[in-house]
Amino acid sequence: MSKTSIYFLLVLTCLASFLLAAGMGSVSISFREILSGLSTPGLPHTLVYELRLPRAMAAFVCGGMLALAGLLMQVLLRNPLADPYILGVSGGAATGALLAILFGLGSLMTQTAAFAGALLSIVLVFVLAHGQTSWTSNRLLLTGVILAAGWNAFISFILTISPDQQIHGMLFWLMGDLSNTRVTAWHGFLLLAITIGGFFSARQLNILARGELQASALGVNTRQLRILLFFSASLLTAIAISLAGSIGFIGLMVPHMLRLMMGADHRALVPASVLLGGSLLVLADTFSRSVLAPIQIPVGILTAALGVPTFLYLLYRNRT
């Protein structure tokens, strides 16, 4: 399949995911109704414009951010196993969020605490790994992984001492949950800005992905590029996670799915990651609130359920 037709498919998937998100739920609304504009006020109008589409928009932005962050992390660490959470950003965010839930603070304070925890984690990793003269991928990776292990102990501790009625909310946060998530234009603008930046640095990313020394020898200012990558990927992760909790799989799978489909060129991969990551999370979130409606399943379970078979299919299709 050519890159153009893959892009065409991605845009179609994106539109379809939004249509599904608008139509599916505990009250289903037919596509004809949605397409006819829902101009008359009423329950369907309120459902679509005030609940479902804003939530789908939030899912798209978070999914796009996670997929892009995963792609950039993989280049930064030159490790195909890297995901947005590998450097411990999610651990810091979760510790902040769980503490906020434990003390009974509202959802806005939980978001703020999660973001503060994520930022703390980013700064810790950067200072620890960057203090040395050589900022190697392995040192960065190990620093992040060790810090993540430390955060995990904290998280287990908070879960252990928390009263039963708060555990449910904490588990939802840990698995990712979009029911209270709303995004503003600023979130979309930031995602767009980093996507454009990544697109125009794609040639540098292609070369950095081959190796740091080789990239330097080919004229890339690797130190500057890696610091930029570290902070943009971490910031995207911190925002997505503070909005929606630690939604798994998207950040690891989407970049690999796209590499299997369209090759190694980041000019194609950067925008495609945002499109596919966003659409996948919109779909997952739509199913998570409609499959067992009115019960909502944490969206992280659905991203895995959708992503794992798709990914395995792509992986083995290419083997033959």
Binding site: Q74, R78, A209, R210, L213, Q214, A217, L218, G263, A264
Partner: peptide, 25 residues
């Protein structure tokens, strides 16, 4: 230009893409 002793390619890439990297500077 440097031809290194060892290379450690992590991600897939075609022979053409790898060669074209030489045009980067």
């Amino acid at each position: 230009g440097v031809l290194f002793q060892t290379y450690n390619e992590t991600f897939p890439s075609t022979v053409m893409e790898s060669t074209l990297a030489g045009r980067h500077p």
